[in-house]
Nucleic acid binder design. Structure first.
Length: 194
DNA sequence: AGCACGATGCTCT
DNA sequence: GAGCATCGTGCTT
């Protein structure tokens, strides 16, 4: 029996949270079926000064979840097709979040494969499609053990298995934000556990 | 294997 | 009305 990561886990510097979320278990109960994957890629978006962070526009309908208490989901829609899943970090009132960019499916793999038409789950829009995550899970409390969307402690990822680099997909962002090494990626396949 | 582009709709100016 | 924290296809090497 594993435990969800507590709110204090998220109430820390976003870079620390992004690094430590690697290997954690992302769980979504979808149509009564438990889907679970190990988080294998994250990115940090930190405050209104970070020009890559949506909060650069201030507190709006869209960015509101990031200003709320840590440990909740911030979900938004982009490019006309894709839902993005973030975990809100740092103290309430400071807008920051970790974008979950990829998972390694562990449980409920058949349903995930079906939804993805057999394709992979490496990519922020792909994992939400596989897990069936949409705007209806926006603001979900990730720390609640009965929540249909939650994150539990997973397996430890050693430093030598982590690649750190600049965030991707930022088209018009200017320096220094464009090159900030705020992306965390597990190099090899994470060992399968239960 | 890598690049270019179109799809598609919500959010903010 | 433009821009976007993307994805998949199709075409080029």
């Amino acid at each position: 029996m594993t435990k969800t990561l507590p709110r204090s886990f998220y109430n820390r510097p976003t870079l620390t949270v992004a690094r430590e979320l690697l290997g954690a278990r992302l769980i979504h109960i979808s149509d009564g079926i438990k889907l679970m994957g190990l988080i294998s890629e994250t990115e940090a978006y930190i405050g209104e000064d970070d020009l890559a962070c949506h909060a650069k526009a201030g507190r709006t309908i869209r960015t509101d979840p990031m200003y709320g208490p840590p440990g909740h989901a911030y979900i938004y829609f982009t490019y006309g097709n894709h839902w993005m899943l973030n975990a809100v970090t740092e103290a309430e009132g400071f807008p920051a979040a970790v974008l979950i960019r990829a998972i390694q499916p562990i449980e409920g793999v058949e349903l995930m494969m079906e939804r993805r038409l057999g394709r992979d789950t490496l990519g922020p829009g792909k994992l939400t499609q596989a897990l069936g995550i949409t705007k209806s899970q926006n603001y979900a409390d990730l720390t609640e053990s009965t929540s249909s969307l939650r994150i539990e402690a997973g397996i430890f990822i050693p430093e030598k298995s982590v690649t750190i680099g600049p965030r991707v997909g930022l088209n018009k962002t200017t320096e220094p934000w464009l090159s900030m090494p705020w992306r965390f990626l597990v190099k090899e396949t994470i060992l399968e556990t239960r």
